[in-house]
């Protein structure tokens, strides 16, 4: 079972829910926690896993042999990402823009282009207690998060069969989030009762519906205000699966990298109930 945790708005508590849900479930289930927020991975700060291995994530980028180039300009015409620019025999390449589609190398009539792996990030894995933790880290300055997200999921794919995989997704609704959430059995959308939380929740709902993933809402900082959140969920027929109350003591615990369920038994109970609700919603009781 794969559960992704997304939000639209940043800072609503995705990582808090992901980490504490993993810690709650580790006693009864085999748990994988995949941190797919590869731009700013944070789950490890709370899990403090023992690192056991890592692998580079690369994108194949073009290297041009100008000796073999016949100046046809085909590479520049075909590249949709403006990552290769032929100026006569001199061909400029912009590897940071390259998506690694392989088009230029494939279509070059003289075979003047070969591909070399460019490192854009790293996948690291290890254990925190019985939790298997895998995260990706986008190399600073590299713009392309989705290949790193896919690498994290691929690393887990065959190992996590039969386990509960919890995916901590990045904020937003665009390609890195889609790469994280797609293929999940269930998605938890974490939001907060403010106009911002509500607005970004509506965007996230559009996204998960587009992906055809079953989902429910977790309200974090409940009690802060209403912001029309409950009305919206009711009108859209979206289940509210958990409410985590607003309390400064939780914020203080989070700040230090603390684990809420270890300090506050009421949070453990909320997450146990959440898990049960997810199983019911995902029809896996």
């Amino acid at each position: 079972m794969i559960i992704s945790i997304a939000s639209g708005k940043g800072g609503t508590g995705k990582t808090t829910v992901a980490v504490n849900l993993a810690l709650t479930l580790m006693e009864t289930e085999s748990v994988y926690l995949l941190d797919c927020d590869v731009e700013e991975p944070n789950a490890h700060l709370f899990l403090r896993p023992r690192l056991e291995g890592s692998a580079k994530v690369t994108v194949p980028v073009p290297i041009v042999d100008e000796e073999q180039c016949n100046e046809c300009g085909r590479c520049g015409e075909t590249c949709a990402f403006n990552a290769i620019l032929p100026l006569g025999k001199h061909v400029l390449t912009f590897h940071e823009l390259c998506h690694g589609c392989g088009g230029c190398a494939l279509l070059c009539p003289t075979g003047a282009i070969r591909e070399e792996p460019l490192e854009i990030g790293v996948v690291e894995w290890g254990h925190a207690g019985s939790i298997s933790h895998i995260h990706g880290r986008l190399k600073i300055g590299s713009p392309l998060a989705p290949p790193v997200v896919r690498a994290v999921k691929k690393h887990a794919q065959n190992r996590s069969l039969g386990a509960v995989s919890i995916i901590d997704a990045p904020p937003g609704t665009s390609c890195p989030v889609v790469a994280s959430v797609s293929g999940s059995d269930f998605c938890l959308l974490v939001t907060e009762p403010t106009p911002f939380g509500l607005h970004d929740l509506t965007l996230a709902v559009d996204m998960v519906r587009e992906l055809g993933v079953n989902f429910g809402v977790v309200i974090n900082r409940a009690g802060l205000g209403n912001g029309g959140l409950v009305d919206y969920c009711r009108a859209e027929n979206i289940p509210i699966l958990a409410r985590i109350p607003f309390d400064r003591k939780y914020a203080k615990c989070y700040a230090k990298g603390g684990r809420l369920i270890e300090e506050f038994p009421e949070i453990r109970k909320i997450l146990q109930d959440l898990w049960h609700a997810v199983c019911v919603s995902a029809e896996r009781v």
Binding site: G11, E39, E40, L144, G172, A255, K256, G257
Partner: peptide
Amino acid sequence: PGVGCPVISSMSGVDLALIVTEPTI
């Protein structure tokens, strides 16, 4: 948020970047 493609596009050529952080790890 983040450090990926939209952030890179936002940052190039600005005169000053104010990073708003919070005291959490």
